Computed example of a mutant assay.
Amino acid sequence: MEQDLESSNYSESDVSTAYWIEWFLSLKGNEFFCEIDEDYINDRFNLTGISAEVPHYQEAFALMTDNLDAEHDLDNLPENVRMEIETSARHLYGLIHARFIITTRGLVKMFEKLRHAEFGRCPRVLCHNQAVCLVMLYCPRCEDVYAPPSRRHAVVDGAYFGTTFPHLLLQVYPQLMPTKSNDRYIPKIFGFKIHGNALEQRKQDEVREEQRKRILAIPGSEGFPQD
Protein backbone atom coordinates (compact mmCIF):
# COMPACT_ATOMS: atom_id res chain seq x y z
CA MET A 1 0.00 0.00 0.00
CA GLU A 2 1.45 3.34 -1.02
CA GLN A 3 1.30 6.20 1.43
CA ASP A 4 -1.34 8.86 0.97
CA LEU A 5 0.29 12.07 -0.23
CA GLU A 6 -2.15 14.20 1.73
CA SER A 7 -1.24 12.48 5.00
CA SER A 8 2.40 13.53 4.65
CA ASN A 9 1.76 17.28 4.27
CA TYR A 10 3.31 17.35 0.82
CA SER A 11 4.20 20.70 -0.69
CA GLU A 12 6.58 21.66 -3.46
CA SER A 13 8.14 24.39 -1.31
CA ASP A 14 9.16 21.79 1.27
CA VAL A 15 10.92 19.71 -1.37
CA SER A 16 12.70 22.69 -2.90
CA THR A 17 14.44 23.56 0.37
CA ALA A 18 16.00 20.13 0.91
CA TYR A 19 17.27 17.14 -1.00
CA TRP A 20 14.37 14.86 -1.93
CA ILE A 21 15.58 11.84 0.09
CA GLU A 22 16.28 14.02 3.12
CA TRP A 23 12.77 15.46 2.82
CA PHE A 24 11.20 12.02 2.35
CA LEU A 25 12.91 10.58 5.43
CA SER A 26 11.78 13.55 7.53
CA LEU A 27 8.09 12.87 6.89
CA LYS A 28 6.03 11.49 9.76
CA GLY A 29 5.52 7.78 9.24
CA ASN A 30 8.84 7.25 7.45
CA GLU A 31 10.92 6.84 10.60
CA PHE A 32 11.43 3.13 9.88
CA PHE A 33 13.31 3.84 6.64
CA CYS A 34 17.07 4.32 6.60
CA GLU A 35 18.99 6.53 4.18
CA ILE A 36 20.12 4.57 1.14
CA ASP A 37 23.72 5.23 0.12
CA GLU A 38 23.96 7.40 -2.98
CA ASP A 39 26.40 5.08 -4.75
CA TYR A 40 23.98 2.17 -4.25
CA ILE A 41 21.14 4.10 -5.88
CA ASN A 42 23.30 5.21 -8.81
CA ASP A 43 24.50 1.67 -9.56
CA ARG A 44 21.92 0.58 -12.12
CA PHE A 45 22.73 -3.09 -11.47
CA ASN A 46 21.05 -2.72 -8.08
CA LEU A 47 17.87 -1.48 -9.76
CA THR A 48 17.47 -4.38 -12.19
CA GLY A 49 13.79 -5.12 -12.82
CA ILE A 50 12.43 -2.21 -10.77
CA SER A 51 11.65 0.07 -13.71
CA ALA A 52 8.83 -2.24 -14.82
CA GLU A 53 7.11 -1.80 -11.44
CA VAL A 54 7.25 2.00 -11.24
CA PRO A 55 5.12 4.29 -13.44
CA HIS A 56 6.98 7.35 -14.77
CA TYR A 57 10.22 5.61 -13.80
CA GLN A 58 12.65 8.03 -15.47
CA GLU A 59 10.99 11.11 -14.01
CA ALA A 60 10.61 9.48 -10.58
CA PHE A 61 14.29 8.49 -10.53
CA ALA A 62 15.34 12.00 -11.56
CA LEU A 63 13.17 13.51 -8.81
CA MET A 64 14.42 11.09 -6.16
CA THR A 65 18.08 11.75 -7.01
CA ASP A 66 17.64 15.53 -7.43
CA ASN A 67 18.65 15.34 -11.09
CA LEU A 68 15.71 17.11 -12.68
CA ASP A 69 16.71 18.86 -15.89
CA ALA A 70 15.08 20.20 -19.02
CA GLU A 71 14.29 16.66 -20.13
CA HIS A 72 12.56 15.84 -16.85
CA ASP A 73 11.14 19.26 -15.98
CA LEU A 74 8.02 18.81 -13.86
CA ASP A 75 6.95 22.45 -13.77
CA ASN A 76 5.23 22.30 -17.14
CA LEU A 77 3.28 19.14 -16.34
CA PRO A 78 -0.33 19.05 -15.10
CA GLU A 79 -0.76 18.88 -11.33
CA ASN A 80 -2.16 15.34 -11.40
CA VAL A 81 0.84 14.08 -13.39
CA ARG A 82 3.28 15.74 -10.97
CA MET A 83 1.51 14.02 -8.08
CA GLU A 84 1.73 10.67 -9.88
CA ILE A 85 5.47 11.15 -10.35
CA GLU A 86 5.87 12.06 -6.67
CA THR A 87 4.00 8.89 -5.68
CA SER A 88 6.20 6.87 -8.03
CA ALA A 89 9.35 8.39 -6.49
CA ARG A 90 8.22 7.24 -3.05
CA HIS A 91 7.41 3.78 -4.36
CA LEU A 92 10.76 3.62 -6.13
CA TYR A 93 12.63 4.56 -2.95
CA GLY A 94 10.75 1.88 -1.03
CA LEU A 95 11.58 -0.86 -3.53
CA ILE A 96 15.27 0.09 -3.57
CA HIS A 97 15.20 0.27 0.23
CA ALA A 98 14.05 -3.37 0.47
CA ARG A 99 17.15 -4.43 -1.49
CA PHE A 100 19.57 -2.09 0.26
CA ILE A 101 18.79 -3.15 3.84
CA ILE A 102 19.94 -6.72 3.20
CA THR A 103 23.37 -5.54 2.02
CA THR A 104 26.27 -5.22 4.45
CA ARG A 105 25.98 -1.44 4.59
CA GLY A 106 22.20 -1.53 4.90
CA LEU A 107 22.33 -4.05 7.74
CA VAL A 108 24.71 -1.77 9.65
CA LYS A 109 22.26 1.13 9.40
CA MET A 110 19.28 -0.97 10.45
CA PHE A 111 21.32 -2.53 13.27
CA GLU A 112 21.69 0.94 14.76
CA LYS A 113 17.95 1.54 14.48
CA LEU A 114 17.14 -1.73 16.23
CA ARG A 115 19.79 -1.14 18.89
CA HIS A 116 18.12 2.17 19.76
CA ALA A 117 14.61 0.62 19.62
CA GLU A 118 13.55 2.99 16.83
CA PHE A 119 11.00 0.43 15.61
CA GLY A 120 9.37 0.31 19.03
CA ARG A 121 9.09 -2.36 21.71
CA CYS A 122 7.09 -5.56 22.04
CA PRO A 123 3.67 -4.95 23.65
CA ARG A 124 3.75 -8.39 25.31
CA VAL A 125 4.30 -7.86 29.04
CA LEU A 126 6.47 -10.95 29.48
CA CYS A 127 8.89 -9.77 26.77
CA HIS A 128 10.00 -6.99 29.13
CA ASN A 129 10.18 -4.12 26.60
CA GLN A 130 12.12 -6.14 24.03
CA ALA A 131 13.03 -4.01 20.99
CA VAL A 132 11.16 -5.21 17.91
CA CYS A 133 12.26 -5.57 14.30
CA LEU A 134 10.18 -5.36 11.11
CA VAL A 135 7.77 -7.41 8.98
CA MET A 136 4.87 -5.81 10.70
CA LEU A 137 6.72 -5.59 14.03
CA TYR A 138 8.65 -8.77 14.80
CA CYS A 139 9.66 -9.55 18.39
CA PRO A 140 12.73 -11.83 18.52
CA ARG A 141 11.94 -12.85 22.10
CA CYS A 142 8.43 -14.26 21.69
CA GLU A 143 8.91 -14.68 17.90
CA ASP A 144 5.52 -13.19 17.14
CA VAL A 145 4.45 -10.27 14.96
CA TYR A 146 2.37 -7.23 15.91
CA ALA A 147 0.67 -4.40 14.07
CA PRO A 148 2.40 -1.03 14.56
CA PRO A 149 0.56 1.04 17.19
CA SER A 150 0.76 4.17 15.02
CA ARG A 151 -1.54 4.44 12.00
CA ARG A 152 1.09 6.31 10.00
CA HIS A 153 3.42 3.32 10.37
CA ALA A 154 0.66 0.79 9.74
CA VAL A 155 0.09 2.11 6.20
CA VAL A 156 3.75 1.68 5.14
CA ASP A 157 4.00 -1.11 2.58
CA GLY A 158 5.77 -4.15 4.05
CA ALA A 159 7.35 -4.78 0.64
CA TYR A 160 9.68 -1.85 1.34
CA PHE A 161 11.36 -3.98 4.03
CA GLY A 162 10.70 -7.57 2.91
CA THR A 163 10.38 -10.76 4.95
CA THR A 164 14.10 -11.64 4.86
CA PHE A 165 15.47 -8.55 6.59
CA PRO A 166 14.76 -9.16 10.33
CA HIS A 167 15.98 -12.74 10.31
CA LEU A 168 19.08 -11.92 8.27
CA LEU A 169 19.87 -9.05 10.63
CA LEU A 170 19.71 -11.36 13.65
CA GLN A 171 21.95 -13.88 11.88
CA VAL A 172 24.57 -11.24 11.09
CA TYR A 173 24.33 -9.65 14.55
CA PRO A 174 23.60 -12.56 16.95
CA GLN A 175 24.24 -10.26 19.93
CA LEU A 176 20.83 -8.74 19.20
CA MET A 177 19.11 -12.08 19.78
CA PRO A 178 17.57 -12.00 23.28
CA THR A 179 17.57 -14.94 25.66
CA LYS A 180 14.43 -16.98 25.15
CA SER A 181 12.03 -16.79 28.05
CA ASN A 182 9.90 -19.62 29.40
CA ASP A 183 7.59 -17.15 31.11
CA ARG A 184 3.96 -17.76 30.27
CA TYR A 185 0.88 -15.91 31.40
CA ILE A 186 -1.05 -17.96 33.99
CA PRO A 187 -4.80 -17.23 34.27
CA LYS A 188 -5.91 -16.70 37.87
CA ILE A 189 -9.17 -16.01 39.71
CA PHE A 190 -8.80 -14.08 42.96
CA GLY A 191 -5.10 -14.90 42.87
CA PHE A 192 -5.58 -18.66 42.46
CA LYS A 193 -4.58 -20.63 39.36
CA ILE A 194 -7.49 -22.13 37.45
CA HIS A 195 -7.61 -25.86 38.12
CA GLY A 196 -6.43 -28.08 35.29
CA ASN A 197 -9.75 -29.94 35.22
CA ALA A 198 -11.56 -26.71 34.30
CA LEU A 199 -9.19 -26.10 31.41
CA GLU A 200 -9.58 -29.70 30.26
CA GLN A 201 -13.37 -29.39 30.40
CA ARG A 202 -13.25 -26.27 28.25
CA LYS A 203 -11.02 -28.02 25.72
CA GLN A 204 -13.40 -30.99 25.57
CA ASP A 205 -16.33 -28.62 24.98
CA GLU A 206 -14.46 -26.97 22.10
CA VAL A 207 -13.65 -30.35 20.51
CA ARG A 208 -17.26 -31.46 20.89
CA GLU A 209 -18.52 -28.24 19.29
CA GLU A 210 -16.22 -28.76 16.30
CA GLN A 211 -17.50 -32.33 15.92
CA ARG A 212 -21.11 -31.10 16.10
CA LYS A 213 -20.49 -28.57 13.31
CA ARG A 214 -18.89 -31.22 11.09
CA ILE A 215 -21.83 -33.59 11.62
CA LEU A 216 -24.38 -30.86 10.88
CA ALA A 217 -22.54 -30.09 7.66
CA ILE A 218 -23.26 -33.63 6.38
CA PRO A 219 -26.38 -33.66 4.13
CA GLY A 220 -29.31 -35.34 5.89
CA SER A 221 -27.65 -35.27 9.30
CA GLU A 222 -29.86 -34.63 12.32
CA GLY A 223 -26.94 -33.59 14.50
CA PHE A 224 -26.37 -34.57 18.11
CA PRO A 225 -29.37 -35.91 20.10
CA GLN A 226 -29.82 -32.66 22.07
CA ASP A 227 -29.72 -30.44 18.93
Rank of each mutant, 00 (worst) to 15 (best):
A70Y: 01
K113P: 01
F224T: 12
F224C: 08
Y10F: 15
N42R: 11
L27Q: 15
T48A: 11
N197C: 09
S88P: 07
I186Y: 03
L216V: 05
D14K: 12
R214V: 10
A159Y: 03
S88D: 06
Q226W: 12
H195R: 13
P166E: 04
Y138S: 07
I41V: 14
G106Q: 02
K113N: 12
F190R: 10
P140R: 01
L47W: 01
E35C: 08
F100C: 02
T163N: 10
R82I: 03
P178W: 02
R214Q: 15
G220P: 02
F111P: 03
L216R: 12
C139L: 05
D144G: 13
I36P: 01
F190D: 13
T163A: 13
M83P: 00
E2L: 14
I36E: 00
T48E: 14
L170T: 12
V132G: 00
T17P: 00
L77R: 09
P174A: 06
F119R: 04
L169T: 02
A159W: 01
H116R: 12
F192E: 12
K28D: 13
I102P: 01
G191P: 09
H167E: 05
N182I: 11
P225W: 06
A159Q: 12
E71G: 03
L216M: 15
A147Q: 14
N67S: 14
R105A: 13
R115H: 14
N9V: 01
S7K: 14
A147R: 13
S26N: 11
M136T: 11
E112I: 04
A198L: 12
E31C: 10
D39G: 02
C133R: 04
K180W: 09
G106K: 02
S13G: 05
V81W: 05
N30M: 09
D4L: 08
Y57I: 07
L176W: 08
G106E: 03
L168H: 02
V108D: 13
K188R: 14
G94P: 07
Q3W: 11
G29I: 05
E210H: 02
T48G: 02
V125Y: 05
R212Q: 10
A147W: 12
R208Y: 08
Y173K: 07
T65V: 05
D43Y: 08
V15F: 05
N46Y: 08
E84A: 15
L74R: 09
Y146A: 06
I189D: 10
S150L: 15
H97P: 04
R124S: 15
I21K: 09
T103G: 04
S150V: 03
C122D: 02
Y160F: 15
V145N: 09
I41F: 06
N67K: 14
L176N: 06
M64Q: 07
